[in-house]
Simulated scan of single mutants.
Amino acid sequence: MKATKLSTLALMPSAIAAQNLTQLLANTTELSSLNALLSSYPAIASSLANVSNVTILAPSNAALETFTNSSSFHALTSSGNQSIADLLSYHILHGEYYADNITDTPAFISTYLNDTAFTNVTSGQVVEAIKQDNKTYFYSGLLANSTVTRTDLNFTGGVLHIIDKVLTVPLNVSSSAAAAGLTAVVGALQAQHLTQPLDDAKNVTIFAPSNSAFQAIGSALGNFTTNQLTDILNYHVINGTVAYSTGLKNDTQYVAAGGQNLTVRIENGSIFVDSARVITPNLLVANGVVHVIDKYVLLSK
Results as ranks from 00 to 15, higher is better:
H291Y: 05
Y235G: 15
S46Y: 03
E267I: 15
V186Y: 07
N227V: 14
S175T: 14
T195N: 06
Y139D: 08
V290N: 06
L233G: 01
S212Y: 08
P106W: 03
A201H: 00
R265C: 01
L37S: 05
L9T: 05
M1I: 10
K5G: 10
D274Y: 05
A191T: 12
I162E: 06
A188I: 01
L221V: 10
Q196E: 12
Y244P: 10
T183E: 04
A177P: 03
D294K: 01
L153C: 08
I56R: 04
V185P: 04
S270P: 00
I279F: 03
T246D: 10
S32A: 07
S14Y: 12
A43K: 13
A10S: 14
T246Y: 03
S174Q: 08
T241K: 15
Q215L: 13
L93P: 01
T149E: 13
P170A: 11
T116V: 12
P59G: 02
A17P: 03
N234Q: 14
A107L: 13
Q215F: 07
G269E: 09
K135C: 02
G218I: 02
K249Q: 14
L182K: 02
K165E: 14
D200H: 11
M12K: 12
D164Q: 05
V289P: 01
T183N: 15
N261D: 12
D294G: 10
T156H: 08
S176G: 04
L87A: 03
A99P: 08
T168R: 10
L88M: 09
E267F: 13
A188Y: 01
N239P: 01
V173A: 03
S39A: 15
I217K: 10
A10R: 14
V185Y: 10
Q260I: 05
A208Y: 00
S146M: 00
D164L: 04
K165P: 05
Y139W: 11
G187V: 00
L37W: 05
T28L: 03
Q19H: 11
M1V: 08
F67T: 03
A17Q: 14
S219Y: 09
N223T: 15
P209R: 04
E65G: 07
N268Y: 07
S33N: 14
I130Y: 07
N50F: 06
G288R: 06
H161V: 02
V297H: 04
T8I: 13
P42K: 02
G95R: 05
T122S: 14
T280C: 05
S110N: 15
S52R: 11
V121P: 02
T280Y: 12
R277D: 09
A58I: 11
T105P: 01
G288I: 03
N203R: 02
T147N: 06
R265N: 15
D251T: 11
N268R: 13
K301A: 13
T22A: 13
A256C: 08
L76A: 10
V285T: 10
V173K: 10
K2E: 15
S140W: 00
N234P: 06
V186A: 04
A220C: 08
